[in-house]
């Protein structure tokens, strides 16, 4: 039983290691002077020399990598070329925003999608099922940012009920409650758009699973035991749905994080994704590397969390050797 948890944690560590290597290699693969990717060419020679020493840029690659891993793991990402402030400070204020965007949109689309999927599975051939089928197909082929731009166009530009940009009003309102409401107001359209784009895939997946589960013998037997319909659905059918639901959550996470980068850019939110995007366009390599690392870390951490939850919800996997995914 221990080995299941050990394997999952081990695989997360491996992914993280790969991310670190990728990050290290990517930003040292730059054409020209590798130093330019870490130290701003605009800095004075003395400052350059000092920074080079700090990052060990004069040392062999392996030492550099060790140093890099050490600083990454202690969240010491160096100085941003663009703002001249430590990248870690810049990121600290943005991580909560990204987590809020990701968390709330993921939660809402999972809830809405799951509910719709279950209803569609219960009433096969209804209008709801058609909605789910089409919603699913559209969410796989619709460019998210286009949909979001249209939403902005309609609900922020044409009918100004939502703000066009930003995570907070400028200047932000005073007082806790007012500040919170302002924040939610700014987050509403981004989250709404992600939910509208995301629920279709969920619903389609849940519907297909649920159709299969409802046809299983143990559901018939649960009915045969005289259990009320709600109990059959919640206690048995939904309980069976839970593990695969976590699997899809797990598999969709990387895509959702990618989507957050686009969403933050479209809505000009103060988050890690837009920071990455600005860093990349502004050739701010320390900042870009750090945001990439953080986004990957976020993905890996949530993947691990849902993986562990999976083990809790499905007693069967804990005994298996390795899980075929």
């Amino acid at each position: 039983m221990r080995s299941y948890w050990a394997r999952r944690v081990g695989s997360s560590v491996l992914i993280l290691a790969l991310v670190l290597v990728l990050n290290f290699v990517l930003f040292r693969m730059m054409p020209g002077d590798p130093v330019a990717s870490i130290v701003d060419p605009k800095f004075s020679p003395e400052a350059k020399a000092r920074l080079m020493e700090v990052y060990g840029l004069d040392k062999p690659m392996l030492t550099q990598f060790a140093l890099y891993v050490k600083s990454s793991l202690s969240f010491d990402f160096g100085i941003s070329f663009l703002t001249g402030r430590p990248v870690a400070d810049e990121l600290r204020s943005r991580v909560p925003n990204t987590v809020a965007l990701l968390g709330s949109s993921l939660l809402l689309s999972a809830l809405l999608g799951t509910w719709l999927g279950i209803q569609a599975a219960r009433k096969r051939g209804g209008a709801l099922e058609r909605l789910v089928l089409w919603g699913g197909a559209l969410s796989y082929s619709f460019p998210s940012f286009f949909f979001q731009l249209m939403l902005l166009m309609v609900f922020a530009a044409a009918i100004p009920i939502f703000p066009l940009r930003g995570s907070l009003s400028v200047p932000p309102p005073l007082g806790g409650a007012a500040l919170f409401l302002d924040y939610v107001w700014h987050l509403a359209l981004p989250v709404l758009s992600q939910v509208l784009l995301g629920f279709g895939g969920w619903a389609l997946y849940v519907r297909n699973l649920m159709v299969k589960i409802l046809g299983e013998d143990f559901i018939l037997m649960a009915r045969g035991r005289g259990l009320p319909e709600r109990r059959v659905l919640r206690g048995h059918a939904f309980r069976m749905l839970l593990p695969p639901l976590l699997t899809i959550l797990l598999l969709s996470l990387p895509g959702v994080v990618s989507g957050a980068v686009l969403t933050e850019t479209v809505f000009s939110l103060h988050g890690v994704g837009r920071f990455l995007m600005e860093a990349v366009t502004g050739h701010d390599y320390p900042a870009a590397g750090a945001s990439f690392f953080l986004l990957a870390l976020l993905t890996v951490a949530s993947t691990l969390a849902s993986d562990l939850l999976y083990g809790v919800t499905d007693p069967r996997v804990r005994l298996e050797r390795g899980r075929g995914r």
Partner: peptide, 22 residues
């Protein structure tokens, strides 16, 4: 297959962005 698993569990867009910039 290990590599495939790993690559599939990293958000792609940020990598693409970094590569495009570099």
């Amino acid at each position: 297959m290990r590599l495939v698993d790993l690559l599939l569990s990293i958000p792609m867009l940020p990598i693409l962005m970094a590569l495009a910039a570099i």
